[in-house]
Design a protein around this nucleic acid. Structure first.
Lengths: 127, 127
DNA sequence: AATATAATTCAATTTATATTGAACTATTAA
DNA sequence: TTAATAGTTCAATATAAATTGAATTATATT
């Protein structure tokens, strides 16, 4: 019988992504960026973190592809960060696939005591 | 104008949750549990980790509410872990709310150079 | 040309937490 | 009643990564 396994590749992609958003300051930064606060200085001050630390976390978010950056066309000293819509949607669908109820499989009976009962249940694939 | 802000409480719940699943071994454990591998020994051996380390990560998953545990009714030495469906669904909806496209707000213009252009754009709430 | 500003980069330090090994608990089997 | 098995707990160590401060880059202003 074929398992509804998440592919190794999908899983390693998901792991990378979750490591990025698993850091509290980064999810807080994403929250601000999504809600329209988008330059380093305001992001940092609104979360009470130093500019260099803000830069550090923003660069990790940027490397992951979750956010974009662009310089102000009028005054190039300012850089604005914004959410990458497509990356965000890809991430959501990866998460929803991973945590899909249909993937939930009853316990495989390779572990546990060897009993008649067990073997019957195994055949029936019963939880 | 009212912001579509994620509440502080929702955000701190989400952060807790993401810290738990942001650790690679734990998402790998969840993957195995979801797909039906559910005792410590098999979970550990399938991911090549020591039993005590498996225990450690399982206890963090358990504390988060994402998984349940129960002893084998026939042989109480065996403990089986399973996904907590409700917790999983709550987490998914928290993630989907956080990453809701409708929350995406264009850049607030409190940062950046002071120009006529800017003020006009600000009033128009234009990206 | 010299100075100021927004942001980044680099090196050093700190902190959190994953990992390891040993001892322990709970349960079952001999 | 002794030994074996599945799993947990504890203390110590190792590792990864967050944080900090100083120096640097890129751009704009005076």
């Amino acid at each position: 019988m074929e398992d509804k396994n998440y592919s190794e590749k999908d899983l390693s992609e998901l792991i990378k992504c979750l490591k990025v958003i698993g850091e509290p300051k980064r999810i807080m930064l994403l929250d601000k960026i999504i809600s329209g606060v988008q330059c380093n200085c305001e992001l940092g001050s609104s979360l009470q973190m130093a500019a260099n630390l803000t830069s550090h976390h923003l660069s990790i978010l940027k490397d992951s592809g979750l956010i974009n950056s662009e310089r102000d066309p009028v005054d190039g000293r300012w850089i604005y960060y914004s959410i990458n819509l497509e990356a965000m949607q890809d991430m959501k669908s990866a998460l929803n696939s991973f945590f899909d109820e249909k993937r939930i499989h009853p316990r495989r009976l390779s572990c546990g005591p060897q009993t008649e009962e067990k073997n019957i249940l195994d055949v029936l694939n019963f939880k």
